[in-house]
Structures are given as structure tokens and as C-alpha cells.
Design a protein around this nucleic acid. Structure first.
Lengths: 188, 188
DNA sequence: CGCCGAGTTGAACTGAATCAAGAAACGTGG
DNA sequence: CCACGTTTCTTGATTCAGTTCAACTCGGCG
């Protein structure tokens, strides 16, 4: 749980009382690898902080699903659109490896927002960061080639390339596994 | 200025004192059409609410620039990445038509966040909405064709198709003007 | 051991980019 | 208000990146 406090402190200070309330709402969950956390079509009820392991957010399709993100230690995993809008999620979330999560429910988070001074400040900062991530992704999708996106991923997250099946990386970059296989060959 | 209060009230209530502080920071600006509000490479210092007119956010390039969004009345225009990070903006913002803006500076907004109860709550909600918009765009870019994106735009914003040059729409959809011209011909 | 999912490779096809040229619309100054 | 020049849009021909379909290899694990 200390990781979470650290993470929050790195965004904005939170006083002890507020931390008390917030942390009382957190629930620890251990999940095996390749387990679906949220099925597409359901409403996301949790925002989960990963303290160990890794997860993936995607839209499952018969052939070649579409991957929206990989999440690792000290990051949040959630079908956050659905969490915010309370509408059925287009996305599915699942673990990649055995994973430990600390999660808070939608209602509990609303309570924290309403009853703490720092909650909204942290929430605002966190949402700003979420925005920045998506914004960067938009830029990448609109103005870079698949090959450039692969190389970017390679430099930003070298560990990811090794741990995660090529087909998932391909679907994150926005191409088929075959195309990524060829891009790879071209590069080396 | 009443539009802005309405807009904020539609997100989350703001008490009179907080509104007093916030509105005292707002500055009205009238700008002619096709005027650059923020040049790419500069640091964005304003978050601007449009009460009349329209604007565009893009990356200017020799041939075919890349468009990230069109903003109309009751929406905010800003190179928001740069505004948040205080780093030089990759994006440029400019008016499309004669436009009236109410803007707040970065420092003034931080003051509002620090000195009001409702500021962070509204900021959080606004940033959630910003996130949702970008998230929707990511989904569209990854899982739809250029033609589908054009048709989506057509149903969501019929007025836009008429008012805005095809080449800007093309660069928003992520294709060249030639390609969009052909998509159009195919459809009708 | 056998099977199955993951990755690779090939061949044919497709949507969009690029290069190029001409037509239409637009706005600005005389 | 017209004439000119510039931008915007269209159309054609060629090229290219990536898709699709298909076959084959490899490695793990049940």
C-alpha cells in the first residue's frame, strides 16, 4: 500500500486524514495471468493500481483484437471511459502476468472526492495526466507510421517488447501481426 | 460572460464567491478570422472559452498539416498539452472565423485551483471530459476507416462540413485532400 | 508425443499517398 | 464590380504500405 501513497505524493501532497479515508476504501486483489478483469459490455466499477504484474486494455474481436494500452507496476488499469460515464465498456481489461492490484470502487472514489480537500486536486492532476497520455497517442496515430510507432515503443519500453506477444504489440501499433513481423525484419 | 457561468454550472455547481474570483481573472478578446492564437513552438499561456466563432488546433507543415480538432461556441480552445506541461507546443491554434474568446492565464487558473473549493472539482470534471474526448478519438483512429470517420463527422457536425475547407477536414480524418475528395465522390 | 498458439514468409490485392495537371471558388485591389 | 492571382478542389496515373489468405515452422505444455 505504501507504493500507492508514494505515487499519490508524487502528484500532489495528501494529508493524513485524507489518506486515512482514501486508503480505507482500497481493496487488495491478487489475480492470475490471462484473467479477464472486466469483460467488454459490462460497466467498469473499479480503478485499480498495479503493484505487481501487468495488464492490457483492448477490444476483443474474432480475428486480431485492438489493443489500447499496456499497464505495468505503479500504473492504473481500468476501462476508465466506462468508469467515468457509467456506460457499458467497449473495452476489456485483463492481466498479462500474475498481478496484484489495489482497487477502489466508483462510489467510494466519489465519496473521497466529496469528503476530502485533496481528493479533487489529485483527481484533477491525475486526469490531466490521463489526458496527456491520450493526446500523445493521438499525435502518434495521426502523424507517424507503424514503423515509427514500433521504434518509439522500443525505446520507451524495451522490456515490453520482450514480455508481450508480438500480436498484441501489433494491434497496439495499429497493424496486423504479419505486418509487424515484416517491419521487424526490415529493421534488423 | 453568462455563457461561461452556464457552461460551468452544467458541469458542477460553483458558489458565488468562487465565481467571483474566477470571473475576475477572465479577459475578453476579439480576434479576426485566420489569426494565429498560439504559434507552434511557443508555450501556451491561456485556456480560452469561445463565445462566438470557431477555431482549429493543428500542426503546421509545408504540405498538408495535421489537424487535431475544431472548436466552436461553448467549447475551449487551447494548446492544452503545452498549457499543462509548460513545454513548447507542438500544436498551433488559430481562428477560422471572427471569434470572441474569454480566456484565463495559466497562473490565474492555478490561483483559482488553490483558492476555491469548487475549482478543483470543476477542473477534475473538465479534465475527465477532455480525457473522454481524446479516448473516443483514439478508438476512432484505431478501429475505423477514413470513410467511416468522415461519415461520423458528417452526422455529429453537419455544419462543420459546410464551413470548413475540405483539406482541413481531410487532415483531421487522417488522409490527404485528394483521398477525401475521392471518398466523397464514392459516397454520393 | 502430439497439438496448438505464435510467429514467419509468400503472393495477390487494396486503400491511400504521391506526383501532376487542370477547373472552380474566393478575395483583394484597382 | 470586374480582373487577376491565389487557394481549394478534383481527377488521373503510378507507387507503396499494409491487408488478406494461405502454408509452413517453431516452442511450449498438457
Amino acid at each position: 500500500m505504501e507504493e500507492i501513497r508514494q505515487f499519490i505524493a508524487s502528484i500532489t501532497p495528501m494529508n493524513d486524514d485524507d489518506w486515512q479515508l482514501f486508503s480505507s476504501k482500497l481493496e487488495m486483489v491478487n489475480v492470475k495471468k490471462k484473467i479477464v478483469l472486466l469483460k467488454a459490455g459490462e460497466i467498469e466499477n473499479y480503478l485499480s493500481f498495479i503493484t505487481k504484474g501487468a495488464a492490457r486494455v483492448h477490444i476483443p474481436l474474432e480475428e486480431n483484437d485492438v489493443t489500447f494500452g499496456f499497464l505495468f507496476e505503479n500504473e492504473f488499469v481500468s476501462a476508465y471511459d466506462s468508469f467515468l460515464t457509467r456506460q457499458p465498456s467497449e473495452y476489456q481489461t485483463e492481466t498479462i502476468t500474475d498481478t496484484t492490484l489495489w482497487r477502489i470502487s466508483y462510489q467510494d472514489l466519489q465519496d473521497v472526492y466529496q469528503n476530502t480537500d485533496s481528493g479533487n486536486a489529485i483527481g484533477r492532476r491525475m486526469n490531466e495526466n490521463m489526458y496527456l497520455l491520450k493526446s500523445k497517442r493521438e499525435l502518434s496515430l495521426l502523424s507517424k507510421s507503424a514503423e515509427e510507432r514500433y521504434l518509439d515503443l522500443f525505446t520507451e519500453r524495451p522490456e515490453l517488447i520482450k514480455q508481450i506477444p508480438l500480436k498484441h504489440i501489433a494491434s497496439y501499433i495499429g497493424v496486423t501481426p504479419q505486418a509487424l513481423s515484416r517491419i521487424r525484419r526490415r529493421i534488423y
